[in-house]
Amino acid sequence: MISRWRIAAALAVIGATFPAIAEIPMSERKSGYDFMGKQTQAMQDDDTANAGMLWVLDGEALWKRHAGAANKSCADCHGDASASMKGVAARYPAFSPALGRAVNLEQRINSCRAERQQAKPLAYESKDLLALTAFIGRQSRGLPITVADDAGTRKAIESGRATFTRRQGQLNLSCAQCHDDNWSGRLAGAPVTQGQPTGYPIYRLEWQNLGSLQRRLRNCLTGIRTIVPALGAQELVELELYLMWRARGMTLETPGVRP
């Protein structure tokens, strides 16, 4: 049972390091949405006000576009995304037994391009990859985040958890110190939030653009003056997976709007 395993793992972590507080209880988890002002919430809630929808529209067009040497579109294999992609984004990153590692949605899209379309991979954080990710993510809006329970997934989650709880950088901070222990506080003027990845890719007002969870993670890592892994790095994929596991059962909001 996953819950028993979770408690055991949590205890192991407490024993290994010095976190002041353990994980956030399930009942106290909050989306970044809950930390936002009413006006920013309203931007997310209204599809004609949510700029992330512009990327969803682009993604819809890309879904139907033929690409690569195979001259196939996503739709040629998967048909109507509202049926075939429903729930998919809510269960990524996922462990790929074939590859022996966790794969995020962006990487999954690119492996489909390589294998089925015989097309070049889309660059990480490129407009097209964000658009397809947002379009696929949109098909799971309102669904609960789910994470598989198998040995490969569990191992990858553990690896992500180790990254989350590791003190690092010149400022010697771990993710957990802010986002588990201090989410009710304010860093300068801004709420710290719990770091629940409920709306990715998000339209971040700061960016004036859509961006991936990895882009957001890299912002925080830059802040604590640590070595920032490249986009797509396995360490970041596993951190993403851990964060999704931490947010399991919470509702996917893609495309989210955040300050």
């Binding site: 004609t48 512009l54 529209l57 682009d58 067009a61 890309l62 407009k127 097209d128 658009a131």
Partner: peptide, 10 residues
């Protein structure tokens, strides 16, 4: 990709 994408609500 199209040059611009617009969403209108009427």
């Amino acid at each position: 990709m199209a040059a611009a994408r617009a969403l209108i609500n009427v």
